[in-house]
Design a protein around this nucleic acid. Sequence first.
DNA 1: TGCCAGGCCGGGT
DNA 2: ACCCGGCATGGC
Length: 223
Amino acid sequence: MTVNVREIYSRLFETFGPQHWWPGKTPFEVLVGAVLVQNTNWQNVERAIANLREADLLEPHALGEVPPEELEELIRPAGYFRVKARRLRSLLEFLVERYDGSLERMFGTELSALREELLSVHGVGPETADSILLYAGELPVFVVDAYTHRIFARHGWISFEDDYHAIQEYFQSNLPDDVQLYNEYHALIVRLGKHFCRKSNPKCAKCPLHDYLPDGEPLEPEF
DNA sequence: TGCCAGGCCGGGT
DNA sequence: ACCCGGCATGGC
């Protein structure tokens, strides 16, 4: 099925309007949030970030020097708190050692090189790296997540077997290189996914994209 | 109440 | 090269 990815975007935007993701936050807070939100509800992440703010720790050097156990307690509400404390510390060590804790310097690095650097940090995978690049660095990278995969595969526009990179290419090669567009598109996909495309809801009834569903083919309810 | 969330890593085949 | 378990809290 051939579908204009821009048309899908328009449909989502008309339905849901602007999502205002990570508005008015500092780039550093976005970076921290990108790790904390891994496979986790954003609401839980907000509690953890509130703890960090209250402790005056939303700054690279300060957060990097917090004792591990204390960091764990502060971010506990975000879930996987031991794992995430380690991942955060890896990322902070990278940021401080490599860029003296300056996000401005970090984002001055050439995009593909910086992406590779981030991916080399323990606990930073493709989605986390791209979220940091797009939402903290305002760099033109399309963020792919589980909802993106599930929604577009269920509709038959991509394959269930496509990996992160294939899906990212699918979007970037069919869209202008526009930070604002990538920002809003990903946020809209998440919005759609939360309401209409959960794992247990394969029929997608009342989904704004319902009329795009392929006829006949079952939609792999377990995915 | 059980299922799930804006992933990623490491060990086993 | 895959596949799968582990990680953990809070909301619906």
